[in-house]
């Protein structure tokens, strides 16, 4: 039971090491800046949207229970809104996976460049 990793059946990998200067270089590179910008344009709005959508449910249920008790079909607004949260969460997750494939392409270039620089030394 030496450490958590052993209990979960894994070993800590030897990490890729590099000088501080090369980390700074990558961080300052155009490609890395592009990657960060691309990530932000998806993640920030997606995060804000799901937080707002979720707390909209809590606020409406908490402060306007009469409105939310309005009957719709066999159920009411409150239940439908709650149920919609599941589907919205699944849709955001799906969209994120799609967007993240784009992030992977951008970071692949950075990885290749870093590996080449290392090989050249």
């Amino acid at each position: 039971m030496g450490n958590a990793a052993r209990n979960f059946g894994i070993t800590e990998p030897k990490q890729y090491q590099a000088e501080k200067s090369s980390w700074d270089e990558i961080a300052a590179s155009r490609q890395f800046q592009d990657l960060m910008a691309t990530k932000k344009t998806f993640i920030v709005p997606a995060f804000i949207f799901f937080v707002v959508y979720y707390f909209a449910l809590l606020l409406l249920v908490g402060y306007a229970p009469e409105l939310m008790s309005t009957k719709v079909l066999d159920v009411n607004l409150a239940y439908l809104f709650a149920l919609s949260q599941f589907f919205v969460a699944w849709i955001i997750a799906g969209l994120y996976v799609k967007a993240a494939n784009g992030f992977d392409r951008l970071s692949k270039d950075i990885l290749e460049k870093a590996e080449n620089a290392k090989g050249g030394k």
Partner: peptide, 19 residues
């Protein structure tokens, strides 16, 4: 910067191995 680059690109973190 090292953590930033690692956590965003996965540089050097691809080698998880099992016993």
């Amino acid at each position: 910067n090292e953590l930033l680059v690692r956590s965003n690109t996965g540089l050097g973190a691809e080698k998880a191995v099992a016993h």
